[in-house]
Amino acid sequence: MIIKLNGENYEIPYICSIEELLIKLNIAKNGVAVEVNLNIIKKISYNTFMLNEGDSVEIVNFVGGG
């Protein structure tokens, strides 16, 4: 199944939750925010929110800025 992850095509082997995706990517939940098809997903829903084929997922964090 292909999703759009931070602007790039990304293959996940099976339908998975955001929580599973973050674990697979080795990304800690703290200090990140996740958006699916322009909707922000609350951290509390990460383990129940299942990703679907073609979903556009953005995972963001903080970087240096002024």
Binding site: L5, N6, F62, V63
Partner: peptide
């Protein structure tokens, strides 16, 4: 301190985190 919001680097997970 101010910070900016940007995409997580998916490819390089060794990259340090500002926080």
């Amino acid at each position: 301190v101010t910070v900016a919001v940007r995409r997580v680097n998916i490819i390089n997970r060794k990259e340090p985190n500002l926080l």
